[in-house]
Design a protein around this nucleic acid. Structure first.
Lengths: 128, 128
DNA sequence: CCTATGGTACGATAGTTATCGTACCTTGAA
DNA sequence: TTCAAGGTACGATAACTATCGTACCATAGG
């Protein structure tokens, strides 16, 4: 539970934790974009979240510890994959329902989000 | 928005708020029991929540303001009804998925919860 | 080796949430 | 009228969460 990169077992997935993770708009967007992107792995940085790096790390940890995504450390970069099979096994229909209710904005399959230019790093104008 | 008994419009339902409301085990149980109970109205007190009255009121308010239930004040007692039609319209499949993933414990259709006897009123041993 | 990139861990802060006790209100029945 | 039952509102507290800055760590490439 305290390992550097820990993932809950399929059987241990908790619906409350999953829903709590998905309740946040930013995290929900990440999960749904992964779902809409054909379950292809993506680096954290490719999601263009309007928050500081530390906060982004936090959100991805919540997603991982809830069992929504699987992360693989590459030293530099960390790939994120939707745990679709596990989720569909434990909560069939949930992902589909969310995807139907709130399809990721940039539809069309796989948009690579053209970098969005200058990576200012930190100090994103304080959200919330 | 500040009226004593306010309900969000169907079009105003927010998925994030709905998921947040359903993330709590107690609130999720209420919603799912209503769903499994044929959408029949039920008083707050019939749900046997292991918390103080004030806390129960809080949870039902969260459910109502998220648009999950509709409440009608009777002076004494307040009836709670699942807003199934509204939910199915905005988030089709969501309720079904949750119901499938976590069917209410006391299954069998409509259990009236036989009073549970002595209503100690407050001081339920402090949970959490 | 040096630097850039993607990301973590720590420590802090502000806002939100769950919980409670007490006082009070409204309806219905004795 | 008086009382019981179901609930609310207020005010408080403790816990959790989102957010951040700074320091730091791996890998990849020059």
């Amino acid at each position: 539970m305290s390992d550097p990169l820990w993932h809950p077992d399929v059987a241990a997935l908790d619906l409350g934790q999953v829903l709590a993770a998905l309740a946040d708009p930013q995290r929900r967007r990440v999960a749904l974009e992964l779902a809409a992107g054909g379950d292809a792995p993506r680096l954290c940085a490719t999601f263009a979240m309007p928050v500081a790096k530390a906060t982004r790390t936090h959100h991805f940890r919540v997603l991982r510890e809830a069992g929504l995504i699987r992360q693989v450390d590459l030293g530099n970069g960390r790939t994120n994959t939707l745990r679709r099979a596990d989720l569909d096994q434990r909560f069939p229909g949930l992902l589909a329902a969310l995807l139907a209710a709130e399809p990721p904005a940039a539809a069309g399959g796989d948009d690579q989000m053209p970098a969005s230019a200058s990576e200012g790093e930190s100090t994103p104008a304080s959200v919330r």
